[in-house]
Amino acid sequence: MAVVFNKTQGLTEKEFHYCPGCTHGIIHRITAEVLEELGVLGDAIGVAPVGCSVLAYDYFNCDMNEAAHGRAPAVATGIKRALPDKVVFTYQGDGDLASIGAAEVVHAAHRGEKITTIFVNNAIYGMTGGQMAPTTLVGQKATTAPYGRDESLCGQPLKVSEMLATINGAAFVERVAVDTPANIRKAKKAIKKAFECQLEGKGYAIVEVLSTCPTNWGMTPVDAISWLQENMMPYYPMGNLRNPWEVE
């Protein structure tokens, strides 16, 4: 028998600290596989966020930086400007990127920084205990929205990919999900393109990954996948919003 699936060299041996069924692990794996498949693991420098994936620096088997909350795109900018030949990426959650780091991601895209962002949207603050995020759906309960997100007070959830797709410097923008094996394979393809976008010097690239948070959503991992499909997918449609190769 031939091995058809084995753990990638792009990940360290460290066990993920994530809760059972948390899809961060899937997104870590496909990102690491892409780095390995593109042969850039030795040139990769990643930037971890603050949030559940704060310890991502322990899991990716490449040089890593831990940024202040939301500042990963600024840190990545500093790295890429100093080492333009290296492959620089940020891995950020929705509290980190869409709230406190909104300015940093918008302007990294706006400058067309040749970096790649993996943006994990699970519609909640996970690490701090299930508080409302800019991406929390209307009516969705959170520990700081105990009656559900009230649109009249908190607005509608921020559609980060659509917003960034209005920026010319954002060369590659795609929203994917990791709810099924088929979608995971699509997500990996998008992440690969997002790194190729950087390798070809085309500009800023971001992949928004719809993800689950069984613990803070208060569901089993299997129910959380269904909730993502039924509630997040209609509001956050999947698909490519910017593709530098189609433009040419």
Binding site: M1, V3, F5, C22, T180
Partner: peptide, 20 residues
């Protein structure tokens, strides 16, 4: 059938798959 769906879905990367 060695389709690797399980390994693809596993968040903790604990599954390896072989196929004939």
């Amino acid at each position: 059938i060695g389709c690797a769906n399980c390994a693809t879905m596993c968040p903790d990367v604990i599954i390896s798959v072989e196929r004939e």
